[in-house]
Nucleic acid binder design. Structure first.
Lengths: 96, 96
DNA sequence: CAACTATTTGGCAATTTGGCAAAATAGTAC
DNA sequence: GTACTATTTTGCCAAATTGCCAAATAGTTG
C-alpha cells in the first residue's frame, strides 16, 4: 500500500510540496511574468540571497523552474508554465 | 515585501503544502471518490491510525476536507473538490 | 594575474514534520 | 454505571526544513 501510494502520488506531491511555501509560490508566479536572475528575485522577495538561491534549487529539483547561465548571472525561467493556472479553487474557503 | 508575499500567496501555499505529501494527496483523491471514515482510510493507507488522523487534521486545517460525525465514527469528505482537477502538468518532466 | 560581481554551498540553530505508541476523549450498547 | 469502538491528543524521537552568515565557486574586467 505505502509503496504504491508513493509511486502514484509521490511525484505530484513533490511538486505541491515545492510550491507549498509562500516565497517559492511567489517566485514561480514572478517567473511566469518574465525570466529573472537571482538578484532580481532577491530584491523582490527580501530574503538573503542565499535563501533565495536555496528556494530556487528546491523549485528546480521539483522540475518547476529551469535556469540558464548568461554572462556571470544565472537566469531562471518557469519550466512548468501550467503552474500559473493552478489555483486551489480561486479564493477558497468558499470555493467548490 | 515579505509581509505582502505572505498575504497574497500564504493561503494558497498552505493548501499546496497540505497536498505536498503522498499520503495526504492520496487521501484527498480517495475522498473525491467517496466519503470515508478514518478507519477505512487507515486500511487503505496502511499507517497507524493516529498518523492518518494527523494527516486528516492537516487537510482540514488547510480547508481541503471537512468531516461530520455519524454515530461513533467521523466521516470525512472532500470540501475543495477542485483539488481533483489539479494536475501539475499531467505527466511532468515533459509537461509545458 | 588581481579585483570584482553573481551565485551556490556548507555549516549552524531554531523550528517543523512524520510516525508510532500510549493515554485521553466521544459516542454506542448493554 | 461498565464495556466497547472510533477518533484525537500527547509524548517522544529522528529527520527534514528554514533562514542567516561565511566560505567557496564561476564568470567578467582590467
Amino acid at each position: 500500500m505505502k509503496a504504491s501510494i508513493l509511486g502514484v502520488y509521490g511525484r505530484e506531491a513533490a511538486a505541491f510540496k515545492a510550491l507549498g511555501h509562500p516565497t517559492r509560490l511567489f517566485i514561480a508566479h514572478q517567473l511566469g511574468r518574465r525570466d529573472a536572475c537571482v538578484c532580481e528575485l532577491r530584491d523582490l522577495v527580501g530574503d538573503d540571497i542565499s535563501t533565495v538561491s536555496k528556494h530556487l534549487s528546491v523549485l528546480r529539483n521539483a522540475g518547476i523552474v529551469d535556469s540558464v547561465r548568461k554572462g556571470n548571472q544565472i537566469i531562471y525561467n518557469l519550466k512548468l508554465r501550467c503552474v500559473l493556472n493552478i489555483r486551489v479553487c480561486g479564493n477558497f474557503g468558499g470555493g467548490k
